[in-house]
C-alpha cells in the first residue's frame, strides 16, 4: 500500500507492506534513519518521534497508521547548522557517548520541555524513564535537560 505523510513539514510517500512499522518505513524507505531500532517492542525509546505532536515509539506504530499524519523526527529539530537548544545542551553537557539512544532522548526532551519549561529533577527522571541509555548512567543527560530548560 502507498502511504502519504508529512515528515518534518514536508510531504513524503512510500510503498509499504502492511506489516511494516513506522520506524521501518522512516529508516529504510523514507530516508530518515535518525530514529533508531534497538528493541522493537517499545521498551527503549530509541525510536521516539512525534506523531501529530504526541511522543510515540515509532516501532509500535504501523506505517499504515501514520498515513495522512504528521511526523517529527530528530532530523527535523535543527535549523540547518543551528542545533535545537536541546541538541546543543546534549553536546555541551557531555550527554552523548555511543549516541544510539541520543536521537530518542533528544526528541523526548524536546517534548518534555514543550509541555513543561522548567521541570523538576523528578519530572525529568520520570519523563525520560522510557528512554534507555547504556553508556552515560543518565547524569549528564539530566544535566543537558536542565541546561536546555534554562537556555
Amino acid at each position: 500500500m502507498r502511504i502519504t505523510l508529512r515528515i518534518n513539514g514536508e510531504e513524503h510517500q512510500a510503498d509499504c507492506w502492511e506489516g511494516e512499522s513506522l520506524l521501518f518505513a522512516l529508516r529504510e524507505k523514507l530516508g530518515f534513519p535518525g530514529a533508531k531500532n534497538a528493541c522493537e517492542q517499545g521498551e527503549c525509546g530509541s525510536c521516539s518521534v512525534l506523531l501529530d505532536g504526541t511522543l510515540v515509539c515509532a516501532c509500535l506504530v504501523l506505517a499504515a497508521q501514520a498515513d495522512g499524519h504528521e511526523v517529527t523526527t530528530v532530523e527535523g529539530l535543527a535549523e540547518g547548522e543551528q542545533l535545537h537548544p536541546v541538541q546543543q545542551a546534549f553536546v555541551d553537557a557531555g550527554a552523548v557517548q555511543c549516541g544510539f539512544c541520543t536521537p530518542g532522548l533528544v526528541v523526548a526532551t524536546a517534548d518534555l520541555l514543550s509541555r513543561n519549561t522548567s521541570p523538576s529533577d523528578d519530572e525529568i527522571r520520570e519523563a525520560l524513564s522510557g528512554n534507555l541509555c547504556r553508556c552515560t548512567g543518565y547524569a549528564k543527560i539530566f544535566d543537558a535537560v536542565r541546561r536546555a530548560a534554562s537556555a
Binding site: 529508516r27 534513519p33 533508531k36 530528530v74 542545533l83 536541546v86 553536546v91 552523548v96 541520543t102 536521537p103
Partner: peptide, 21 residues
C-alpha cells in the same frame, strides 16, 4: 572539550552500522 561526534549524533546524522544502505 566537547566530542567531535556529538553534533552529528544529536542530529540523527551519525551513521551507525544499522543505518547503512
Amino acid at each position: 572539550v566537547p566530542r567531535a561526534d556529538a553534533p552529528p549524533k544529536v542530529k540523527g546524522e551519525f551513521v551507525y552500522a544499522s543505518d547503512l544502505i
